[in-house]
């Protein structure tokens, strides 16, 4: 069963190749179909080196990180609720 499924896959590949109608050698690599699972891998850069302007540095590192707590917004629902709750406890 699985053997025939295999065959039909190959057929599909062949059809795709034909429709493009080129002599382009089979993509032994860079098969777009496998890229979904391959996205774990650090890609080869298409260039070896680049200028500093093409790095992240020009954008700067400000505004990339912030403190982990919310600004003390006293109107925030939770804070209001909390104060109510604590008031009850206080009594």
């Amino acid at each position: 069963m699985s053997g025939s499924a295999q065959g039909s896959n190959d057929m599909k590949k062949a059809v795709v190749n034909d429709s493009k109608n080129t002599e382009q050698p089979l993509a032994l690599e860079k098969k777009p179909t496998t890229q979904l699972e391959e996205d774990d891998e650090f890609e080869d850069f298409p260039v070896e080196d680049w200028a500093e302007e093409e790095t992240q540095i020009p954008a700067g590192n400000t505004h990339l990180w912030e403190e982990s707590w919310d600004d003390d917004d006293t109107n925030e629902d939770f804070a209001v609720q909390l104060r109510e709750e604590l008031k009850k406890l206080g009594k």
């Binding site: 996205d39 774990d40 650090f42 890609e43 850069f45 260039v47 093409e54 790095t55 992240q56 990180w65």
Partner: peptide, 25 residues
């Protein structure tokens, strides 16, 4: 790695940040 990374390289930048973000936390 983040600072030096080639800016059009989305995949690599996102991989770097996948680890840098938990680190920074």
């Amino acid at each position: 790695a983040w600072e030096t990374c080639w800016s059009p390289s989305q995949q690599n930048k996102s991989l770097i940040l996948t680890y840098l973000i938990p680190c920074r936390l």
